[in-house]
Design a protein around this nucleic acid. Structure first.
Lengths: 355, 355
DNA sequence: CAGACTCCCGGAAACGTTTACAGGAAACAG
DNA sequence: CTGTTTCCTGTAAACGTTTCCGGGAGTCTG
């Protein structure tokens, strides 16, 4: 027995062969016992004992090679520093962990090259599936997506015809919620601090902003519109540029990082929030509630989108023949102090403000 | 040729056998060409062509099984939402990616059970090494650490005798920097909002705070000390409790999340920062600069610690026989508006403040 | 021209696991 | 007592790659 294998040298890690030899059974029996399928009482006892004595732990790689599954799921997002992705990550992680898998996170920096490289690399099967949340979508992307050898779920807008599982939100509607709220509170000089227009969310939010203003018969004043990127520093800089040339009474910001930057710029310039200028962010991240005053924000359901994407992915891994599905999460608005209505006479409302 | 293998069915993914058969060479030759070692010009041409035609991509798992390396490095931190870990992650990711590996991030929630489970799971070799940043360290930890079958580097304080690669900072000294700065600015009623005392950083910072006050002959007023956990909400709540019973003129906070919570509590209660109360955080994360006023914060070199830990890990993976090493990163203080000295008469300084 | 050397190639083993298959023993029915 | 069923076991193949090794052809040297 066991003649095909050399005697185990003392320092190498134990394999199923080690255990089998020590228990005096074949590797097949050892494997069966270790996996809890079959085996006589006596065999089970011997194998368990032998495994415990040598401290056997199965090798995940060999198991993966045999089973053709790695137990890993990848998530690719633009920026792990953005709290919106943190909440997405948490939601995905919960679902993924519940299925006994682990999550592998990639930061793409929004670089298309990175994302397509990642997609191509999927072919080497280091992962059972992937959730991708791109902010720019190119034909390269789509091509790589549809012929990906492992399941991919996309979070975000995608061409209507793309045969890819997809979870999206309606960010145009999201912007509209913010605008409606501000208009209803009597604001008229509503500004907009957006991210890059060549991104999918940037373009959608721009369109949503213009449509929403039009719906309320408020003309768009281009001096009240600024563009940076989706980061804090850019949001602050963009707001400073905007304030240098115009006097908004409200600012809609394309995400919470931008909104925090805008808030900073406003306060530093001596404007009161919300008395002089109301601020509404987007994504409704933890950050929004940390600010003083707390930021109103449009929730785009990032946790919910993450959860659903993870579920779609797991289902597709289980059954790759499933038809492509598309789910949508509705936006909602959380009104907080930064856009609370202020009385006709300007003194601070219930919220206590430093004199 | 190729008689041992069944003819490839059209739908299965190409393997090196497919390529070899198509090119009319052995799998050994095909493998050599694909790895860029050896092969005649003619063979190289044929194999490359065949690989391109069938769209061959090597299987990462099979390669790992053979090479005994997965190309993955794990990072386990308490909370991926804490920006201090984000910057650590970024620094680690940069080093790891430069070595052609990928980073796998685990969130442990600070649970000891999770961390030891993770360490034990290392034995199955799904990863080439791991960086662990525990906030509590038990004997279980140490036991699991020293007998880990794959290299582990710990970020944080560890028993002096533990034979484990370790990157640490001096957080007692960090707290002292904050206290010195505040004392030098004339503050005397210095409060402290800490995390749990049963954590390594919590205990160290508590000790540092008391030692620093003693060094300046300022008695510790226990009413000025509060404990929560290392989160925003806890920091805010702890500060509210503290303010309900005492009037500090400065607050040292055990991390930036707590500091943001403290700032919020102070402003909401109508205190001016820094005129009435100075605030100093720790970790010097991006968050500190996003606040208004910007938060002073003690940098514990999180990015630097991450970078060094990653380098130690890569070196140990390359040569497991290396003796255990220990590196230390010095803290430094970034003074910003939240603790800037204010003139003897109290009106706001150069920093413009809403009237 | 013989021998040594270099280069390239193919066969086969190895990484560590799971599992299809066949054989043997025990239990059971007739 | 024989034939069938059941249960357990071991052999060996398979997952897809890399690599050791031996052999053959070609080249160079003396």
């Amino acid at each position: 027995m066991g003649r095909k294998r050399l005697p185990e040298s003392a320092d190498s890690r134990p394999t199923v062969h080690t255990v089998a030899a020590r228990a005096g059974v074949s590797i097949a029996s050892a494997s069966r016992v270790l996996n809890g399928v079959g085996g006589s009482e006596e065999t089970i006892r011997k194998v368990r004992a032998a495994a415990a004595e040598v401290g056997y732990v199965p090798n995940a790689i060999a198991r993966s090679l045999q089973s053709q599954r790695t137990g890993l799921v990848a998530l690719a997002v633009e920026d792990i520093g953005n709290p919106v992705y943190v909440s997405m990550m948490r939601a995905i992680e919960a679902v993924v962990a519940a299925s006994g898998r682990q999550l592998l996170v990639h930061a793409t920096g929004g670089q298309i090259a990175n994302e397509t490289a990642l997609l191509r690399r999927l072919a080497n099967r280091y992962v059972d599936g992937m959730i991708l949340s791109p902010i720019r979508v190119t034909d390269d992307h789509l091509a790589a997506l549809v012929q990906s050898p492992v399941p991919v779920v996309v979070i975000g807008q995608l061409g209507a015809d793309a045969p890819v599982d997809n979870v999206r939100t309606d960010s145009r509607r999201g912007v509209a919620l913010a605008v409606e709220h501000l208009v209803a509170s009597g604001r008229r000089r509503i500004g907009f601090v957006n991210g890059p227009l060549d991104t999918v969310p940037g373009a959608a939010r721009d369109a949503g902003f213009r449509a929403a203003l039009a719906a309320h018969a408020v003309p768009v004043d281009e001096r009240l519109v600024e563009v940076g990127d989706f980061q804090y520093a850019a949001g602050r800089a963009a707001t400073e540029r905007l304030l240098a040339r115009a006097r908004p009474d409200a600012l809609v910001c394309a995400n919470d990082l931008i909104a925090v930057g805008a808030l900073h710029a406003l306060l530093a310039a001596g404007h009161r929030v919300p008395e002089d200028v109301a601020v509404v962010g987007m994504d409704d991240t933890e950050l929004a509630q940390m600010m003083f005053p707390q930021l109103s924000s449009v929730s785009l359901g990032s946790a919910e989108r993450g959860r659903r994407a993870a579920e779609l992915l797991l289902q597709r891994i289980a059954d790759p023949a499933l038809p492509p599905r598309r789910e949508q999460v509705s936006p909602s608005l959380a009104v907080r102090a930064s856009s609370r209505a202020v009385g006709p006479a300007s003194p601070p409302s219930t919220e206590k403000v430093p004199s």
